[in-house]
Design a protein around this nucleic acid. Structure first.
Lengths: 151, 151
DNA sequence: TATTGTTATACTCTATAACTATA
DNA sequence: TATAGTTATAGAGTATAACAATA
């Protein structure tokens, strides 16, 4: 008979697979972001680009793409849109005229400043089920996993 | 001048954002999967479906979709393909003729059996940078975050 | 020759709405 | 009326290859 398949589904070999759990956890984190920013038309990808540009004024476009694991081809399209939206400036430096140096405009800085509080709130909410110590541990382990820990 | 933007890029507010770190970590985990299974034409999504069906013989299609956070519409398409590939059977149960109960075929079971070892190896490799204790901690925290921990 | 960025394009995932057949 | 699944389709996100300009 077919009365098996219990209510909380058995995950089998998936139950402790890091890749699968990372996917589920990330879906939840993205959902928290969209809950907070649904009305703004702001995506996690664009917001993280703006934050990293803010932390690295004049960063080369390809370096930014590399840091965020985005293909240069796709970065080009997004940067063109952000420039047209007036959020970033792109400057061709004299010492290497192939490159594009990127900075936030005042409008770009104002945008992330206006959303910084809600961004932090969303990040907290995404891991609200964890105790404070657990959150710190999780972040530290993910930093290590992503090659982003302090050496 | 523009000589800022240091080699390991500053991540700013992103440096300890769980959502961003989860994304980077998941990209790495997926890369580990594809390194292992590139030649097989096997994707993480399909492989995880087969594993969960194996652990829940006769599971309803919608329940499976729910457990894996996949929309029913997309699950329908994938299941039709897996059935045509001879990996799963779909049976309409007599007690609810709207439903589809899914089971692995012998071929489906053989496929996951043939790849189980490499799947475990890939999962290990994805978190190889962590110490054994750290891996267990990470998995436990992710299970909690994904609502998949033992209550 | 190699590198930086761009364009064009295709492919996969995912999302929504309208539909059917059953309950 | 509500539910399970299906179809069609549209939209992100992401991938590759060919190219121009520059080093």
């Amino acid at each position: 008979m077919d009365a098996l398949a219990p209510a909380p589904l058995a995950l089998g070999a998936l139950a402790d697979d890091p890749g699968f759990l990372l996917r589920l956890a990330q879906l939840r984190a993205y959902a928290a972001f969209f809950d907070e920013f649904a009305d703004e038309g702001l995506t996690p990808g664009v917001f993280s680009m703006l934050l990293v540009i803010d932390a690295n004024p004049g960063v080369r476009q390809g370096v930014l793409a590399d840091a965020l694991s985005i293909k240069p081809a796709n970065m080009a399209k997004t940067m063109r849109r952000l420039e047209m939206d007036g959020l970033v400036n792109r400057i061709t430096p004299d010492d290497d005229r192939r490159a594009q140096h990127i900075r936030l405009t005042d409008k770009g800085r104002a945008l992330i400043a206006a959303h910084a509080g809600r961004f932090r709130a969303q990040a907290e909410r995404a891991v609200a089920i964890l105790k404070p110590g657990e959150r710190r541990t999780l972040v530290a382990l993910l930093q290590k996993l992503a090659g982003r820990d302090a050496p």
